[in-house]
């Protein structure tokens, strides 16, 4: 397979995953803003921060407002990380690697772009936002289903999986990075109503409310939430789960190709360093530093993969 094709598959998967994650963050943001128990502007700023687009936003707008924040994250093509932008990039990458995709995967990606672009020709009103975000999640699920159901389990598939899980780990990490302070143990606020809403929102933004309740029951504690998002082995958006998948897929490539780049080893190191420990240990070392270091090393791993498999010249 061409190095360029591997890169196209990797980025197609990353962009699709990013679109889905941003949609979920917007959903959570809207929901939070509607609870009126705290400053909604702050909530939108945190959505902008989590999606990594706050600086770009502030270069266009003077202040954070609900409508502008939604528009910037959702459909502004000046924002290269807006949902509409990343779906366009996913589609361009899919077109680039058309020969490596099954008809089902390609037409699902193509249809996703066509629907999203058609829906976002004009500003999306608050009333229509939930429907649009749901459509985006549905389309993402459609592409994922086509990928799982029709792609041969070869190196092409491995690269889409690696892209998906690198992006997902990055996303979960960013949510924790922006909201870590909510999870820090303090002497007084033990389950105040505001805390509960904040905790709920973290779970919601990774679509894990239900999974959390099954695992931990009704009792919500910061430590359990952090444990769930970082170390749970079954939660498909936990750092543990994502890093396992990256490791596995790099190992498949190693087996398939008969050689491994340094990324394969780096994925093992990443796992051992950050995920083979207890949540108490992580809190002791400092949650914020932990997340920052993790995101930096994850990014480093992603770059190494690009080099090892010759994505670019």
């Amino acid at each position: 397979m061409l190095g360029k094709t591997a890169g196209g598959l990797f980025w197609m998967a990353r962009y699709l995953e990013r679109a889905e994650n941003s949609a979920r963050l917007l959903e959570t943001g809207q929901r939070m803003a509607l609870t009126r128990t705290h400053n909604s502007v702050e909530e939108w700023a945190s959505v902008l921060k989590t999606t990594g687009v706050l600086d770009g936003y502030l270069s266009k707008y003077n202040e954070v407002t609900k409508d502008n924040a939604i528009d910037w994250v959702l459909r502004d093509m000046e924002n290269t990380s807006s949902i509409r932008s990343v779906i366009k990039q996913a589609r361009d990458n899919a077109r680039l690697v058309r020969t490596a995709l099954t008809h089902d995967v390609w037409s699902a990606v193509n249809a996703t772009w066509m629907r999203v672009d058609a829906t976002m020709k004009r500003r999306v009103s608050e009333r229509d936002l939930p429907g649009v975000l749901e459509m985006i999640r549905h389309q993402a699920a459609l592409v994922r289903g086509a990928n799982l159901g029709t792609m041969l389990r070869n190196d092409m598939f491995d690269f889409t999986r690696i892209g998906t899980f690198v992006e997902r780990a990055d996303n979960t990490g960013r949510i924790l990075d922006v909201k870590y302070y909510v999870l820090l143990p303090t002497a007084f606020s033990v389950g105040s109503s505001l805390d509960n809403i904040q905790w709920e929102s973290i779970l919601r933004s990774v679509g894990a409310g239900g999974g959390y309740r099954i695992t931990h029951g009704q009792k919500t504690t910061p430590s359990d939430i952090a444990q769930f998002l970082i170390l749970d082995q079954r939660m498909p958006r936990s750092l543990h789960f994502c890093c396992r998948k990256i490791q596995e897929n790099l190992a498949y490539l190693k087996k398939d190709y008969g050689f491994a780049g340094s990324s394969c080893e780096a994925s093992n190191t990443l796992f051992d360093t950050y995920l083979d420990r207890s949540i108490a240990n992580i809190f002791e070392a400092g949650l914020h530093e932990y997340i920052e270091d993790f995101l930096r090393d994850l990014n480093q791993l992603s770059r190494q993969i690009e080099i090892d498999y010759r994505f670019y010249e």
Partner: peptide, 9 residues
């Protein structure tokens, strides 16, 4: 020879 850059070289 004209060669293409693959994931394996």
């Amino acid at each position: 020879r004209v060669c293409m850059r693959t994931t394996r070289g």
